[in-house]
Design a protein around this nucleic acid. Structure first.
Length: 268
DNA sequence: AATTTATTCAACCGCTGAAAT
DNA sequence: AATTTCAGCGGTTGAATAAAT
């Protein structure tokens, strides 16, 4: 089937690129009926599109919460990291990138990171240089982020100790309370570079998906990392805020924040 | 300026699993 | 319990566009 038949009706359904009018009909439909029940769109909205096509158009293009524009370097970092963890589970990866679709992420990864099948011989050297440059830039970026993370982590550990000692002081009046404090430990550098180190080859990039040997994937929900951090937190961490209150806030405000953070972990 | 080649990405397909009948 | 319907997923295609020759 070629796009030469685009827009033709086969078995009653239109195919190919959507027109502005069709988009408007679909938007109206969702406005009235909500998402879902895609197979009734044709009947209720007067669209000659099958449910599958309608759903895809909405999910990948018309949804109001979609983020337009290019993938940012930070989003790219997340994509690479999550792909190294989950492989081609695009929808899982997309859940950690609000406003981005699995299709978008899949296309992005495939066009930028998937090994090229063939390069014209005279371009081989040029391509190699470009790749090396990009890899070095990526490595440099990662190192900067790691340094930031380490600094923040050290700083936050100090802060955390102060808060904990304050809390323990507060509780010391009650000798019967046997408090145990859970302090989340974080590896100084999360494994963002795990699959993308300086020596990473493109072959490794393509086949680096570290699926467990037992062939069984960990729980899909991309919520909690091994080190106990949430991905939301990781984004903030990359922002340099470590999932905390903004840098402009006072130390007291941060302590209050930490108090709230730590209190749930106080046992006893 | 014209042609060829490479890249991007919207939209499709087949498949799977869950829910409904 | 078996069948059908539906939503969602990942892989693939090919038109449009950009870059190279």
């Amino acid at each position: 089937m070629s796009w030469g038949m685009m827009g033709t009706v086969e078995e009653g359904w239109r195919r190919g690129p959507w027109t502005a009018e069709e988009d408007e009909l679909l938007i109206q439909y969702v406005r009235v009926h909500g998402e879902g029940r895609w197979n009734s769109v044709a009947k209720l909205a007067g669209l000659k599109r099958n449910g599958k096509s309608c759903r895809l158009r909405w999910v990948n293009y018309l949804r109001p919460d979609l983020k337009r524009g290019q993938i940012t370097p930070r989003e790219e970092t997340i994509i690479l990291e999550l792909h190294s963890k989950w492989g081609n589970r695009w929808s899982t990866i997309a859940r950690s990138l609000p406003g981005r679709t699995d299709n978008e992420i899949k296309n992005y990864w495939r066009t930028r990171f998937k090994k090229k099948k063939k390069s014209p011989p005279n371009n081989v050297e040029k391509a190699k240089k470009n790749r090396l440059l990009k890899r070095q830039q990526f490595q440099q970026q990662m190192q900067q982020q790691q340094q930031q993370q380490q600094q923040l982590f050290q700083f936050n550990q100090l802060d955390m100790k102060k808060i904990i000692s304050l809390l323990q002081d507060n509780n010391s009046g009650d000798s019967s309370s046997n408090c145990a404090v859970y302090v989340p430990q974080m590896a100084p550098t999360t494994a963002i570079t795990s699959a993308y180190s300086l020596n990473t080859t493109e072959e490794q990039l393509e086949g680096h998906c570290n699926r467990p040997n037992n062939g069984y994937w960990p729980d899909e929900a991309p919520v909690i990392e091994d080190n106990g951090l949430w991905w939301d937190g990781s984004w903030n961490l990359l922002d340099g805020n470590f999932g905390m209150s903004p840098a402009t806030e006072t130390c007291d405000a941060r302590k209050a924040y930490f108090h709230n953070l730590v209190t749930p972990f106080l046992l006893g």
